[in-house]
Structures are given as C-alpha cells and as structure tokens.
Design a protein around this nucleic acid. Structure first.
Lengths: 256, 256
DNA sequence: GAGCGGTAAG
DNA sequence: CTTACCGCTC
C-alpha cells in the first residue's frame, strides 16, 4: 500500500505532470494540496482515465485539497466542520481500504505576527480538536499534507538562516507537535531518523539547483500504520524540468 | 528572394514558434507585427542565432513591428514620423538588398464609428502621405503587414456575414485602395486572381478548424518588384497546434 | 480565445 | 519565480 502527498500548486497548470506522475509512481492513495480551482474545474475525467477516483474540496484561486485513490473514497468530509466562519478549503477526509485519510494544506502564515500567522496557529488548534472529536489514536489514520512547518533543524538546509522565520518558528513547531501528540508519527522520520531530505524549494534564488529546501510535506500515521511502515521517500524528479510545482511528492509504503 | 509578413501576436509568447518557422521557411526578409514588447524585450540574440538581423520598433503591451533579414537592414526609420502625436508603434522601414521594406500594423478599428475606427482611417491617410513624401512608384518597394482590411469578397469566408463589419467596411477598403493607388499591387492577388486563401482566423468559435478566416495580411509591391513575382502563399501550418498566433505567415518569392 | 499588465500570494 | 484574478484589446 503506497500513500503519497503532493502540493501541486494549481492542478490546472500541472495537469499533465500530475497524470504522468500517477502513471509511473502508481500510488494507491494520494493527498493533493493547492489545487487552486473549484470542484467544477477539477480534471476528474482525466484523473479517472489514469485509474483514480477523486474526492475534491476545491476553492477558486487559493487552497483546495483532494484525495485520489484507486479504490473509491468513502464517507468524504470536507473542511474542519467546526462551526468557525472559514472559507479556506484546506482539509478533506475520506476512507479508503479501511484507512481514514486526511489531505491537509496548513496555512503558510506569511510573516511572524501577521494576521495569517495567527490564523495558522489557530488552524492547528482546530485540527487537533478535529482529531480529538472524530478519531481515536488506535484507528488506522493517515494525514498527508503540506504542513508549512519544518519540524526540526535537519528539515532545513540551514537552521541558522531559518531561525525565527515563518515555517520554522517555535510556535509553529509547537502547534504541529500538539497535533502529533494526538498519537501521530512523522512516517519519514520514523524510518530515517538522520536522513535529510526536502520536499519544497522556493521558486526564487535558484533554491532547487542549490538544494536549499525544507521538509514541510509530511505523512503522519497512527501506531497501527506506523508498525506497517517499510519505506518512505521524496520524488525529487517531479520537481525538475519546466513548470514544476515548488513541492515534490512524498510517499510511504505500508506492508500488508 | 523570399519576403514574408507575419502578425505574431506577442513575440515573447511565440518565440520558439517564430524561430522554428524561420529555420524551416528561410525567408530572406520578414515583416513582423504585434510584437507586444519593448525594444529591450525583443529576442534579438535568439533571432541572431538562427541567422537574422532585426530592426525593431517596439512598444509595451500593444503593437510593435520589426523587420528581420539575413542581410543587415540599413537606413531604419521608425514610425510615420509625420509630426502627429502618436505613440502607436505600427510602422518600421529599412533597406535590404536594394529593396525598401516597410513592416506595417494597421489599426484594428474596433467597431464602426468608434474612436479607433476613425483613427484607422486617419492612419491610412497618413500612410499614403508617408509614401508620397518619401518614395516614388518607380522604386523597388515592398510593404508587408497586417492591414486589418479584407479587400474583396473573395478575401472573406462569407461576405454577407462580414458586410458592414469592421475589417470589411467600404471606408476601410477605400482607405486601403488609396494607399495602393500610390502604385502598389497586392502580390498574392496579382499572381492568383481567383484563389481564396486566408491569413487570419479568430481564436474563438473554432474559426480555424472551420476555415472561417479573412485575408488581411498582404504584401504590397511596386511595379519593379511585381514584374519579378513568381509565387506567393500562406503558411497555414504555422496557425496549427498549441498556442498559435491568430495569423499565419504570408510570403512572396521574387526572381533574381 | 488569447495576449499583457498590475496586484496578490506562495 | 510561478500562479491566479481582473480589466482591457484584438
């Protein structure tokens, strides 16, 4: 069982690249983020043609998340559904093959102490509440997403340079940790405690050729899935070439 | 001697297509229109690499004309230079191989009786004045351009549908004829009085697949060049495929 | 339908 | 750097 997450930065601008990747990588389940399109504009038919069902929570211009799967996703829930007045399409959940799957796009947070930064910290609190009220740590649960937080020094190309910057502040790391404290483990880090791999590189300043990236895309799993982990990697190739997303896909492999 | 004209509808959006066409069509001289870029943004180096010198009269966003040639264009003149306060970059002239070459982009005219329509008719009058004051009908002179006028019924896919529409009104045809009365002949029409070929097809309504086009791109020549005409055609292939210009290149061949 | 430009966002 | 939107032109 292969489960992946990928911030595609516009599914319309990236359609052929995503389809190519699905054809070759053949994940069973994929969490997508930053679709930047409405449900109506999501390329459902094209995705179907390469063998995937799609559960989509779209939004015009910004955000937008989806779960693609070879099996049909069941019991689809869109958003945090906590009564907060919030138009951001940042979360979708569905059940696939007995696993509850969440695709999440955490707020970027813009700059420290901005309105958006505050919203980001709040969003993490709301996500923890979402888990507390709907799930148990004993369930088979996976959250794939762009978390917009690099959890540790090893997850940045230069922790000194990132110190105090958005994506790497103590408050953001603590907010993410609180979500993990529900009973989730960072699958890549469980398997490879000392390996440095990045999942995102800024479009600017030749960040990708210089490998000046961050690991901000993670798959979080509960214990019943963590015990089945056999591999995890970043598909760095998908960041190469013309018109790439600024993120690469990240995947995990679970034993039966 | 092969001379061509092509409204490229943004040289930056069309750069590779234009270079490919230069490599295969191998014209000696090319008049380009609708560069939609400043002189600084024109891809002079890339054009040089495929064997062409460039004389450019650029403008930001709108208009912009150029003359490309295997030989270096001499005595370049930009604009109508008639003292009228006019920022539109719609004309450039240069001498190549003993021939005076003009690349022209006539105003579109928007809708009949609009300010733009009036400007179009004025522009044609100014062009006639330009010829009268700078040239003699006996000289070897060629004007290649997007004239935004279909001269006759045969130059539209449906004269009934176009009757009274901009690009096909009596006033526009008369304005163009007055320019021709200087001593110019429509090279394609001289060679093929009864052949219907179009050079422009609207991007909308599947106009190209249905061949619902107009012939609004012409090469006008004085008698000394008309007597040397051996062939003329529209490179319809260049209108096909992804991200084409809405115009196809038109060319003439002169015997030595 | 497709181009640009300015703005907003990452 | 790259995408998306809007308003404008062709």
């Amino acid at each position: 069982m292969k489960i992946a997450t990928w911030n595609v930065n516009s599914i319309r601008a990236r359609q052929e690249r995503v389809l190519d990747w699905l054809r070759t990588a053949q994940p069973d389940i994929v969490c997508l983020q930053e679709l930047k399109c409405t449900d109506a504009d999501f390329p459902t038919d094209a995705v179907r043609e390469v063998g995937y069902h799609a559960a989509v929570h779209g939004q015009k211009t910004y955000n937008g998340v989806a779960i693609l799967a070879k099996e049909e996703p069941r019991d689809v829930v869109r958003g945090l559904s906590d009564g907060v007045d919030d138009t951001h399409a940042r979360l979708i959940a569905a059940t696939v093959g007995g696993i509850r799957v969440v695709s999440a796009y955490a707020p970027n947070g813009q700059s420290v102490d901005s309105e958006q930064y505050h919203y980001k910290l709040q969003w993490y609190e709301r996500l923890r509440h979402y888990l507390d009220t709907r799930h148990k740590p004993g369930e088979p649960l996976v959250l794939g997403g762009d978390w917009n937080v690099a959890p540790a020094d090893i997850d940045t190309y230069d922790p000194k340079e990132w110190e105090g910057q958005t994506l790497f502040t103590a408050k953001e790391k603590a907010a993410l940790k609180k979500v993990c404290d529900f009973g989730l483990k960072d699958a890549f880090r469980v398997l490879y405690p000392d390996v440095q791999k990045f999942s995102w590189w800024d479009y600017r300043m030749l960040a990708f050729p210089k490998n000046r990236g961050l690991r901000i895309d993670h798959l979080y799993v509960t214990e019943s899935l963590a015990s089945r982990l056999v591999a995890s990697d970043v598909d760095r190739e998908a960041r190469k070439g013309k018109q790439p997303s600024d993120h690469a896909p990240v995947w995990i492999e679970l034993r039966a």
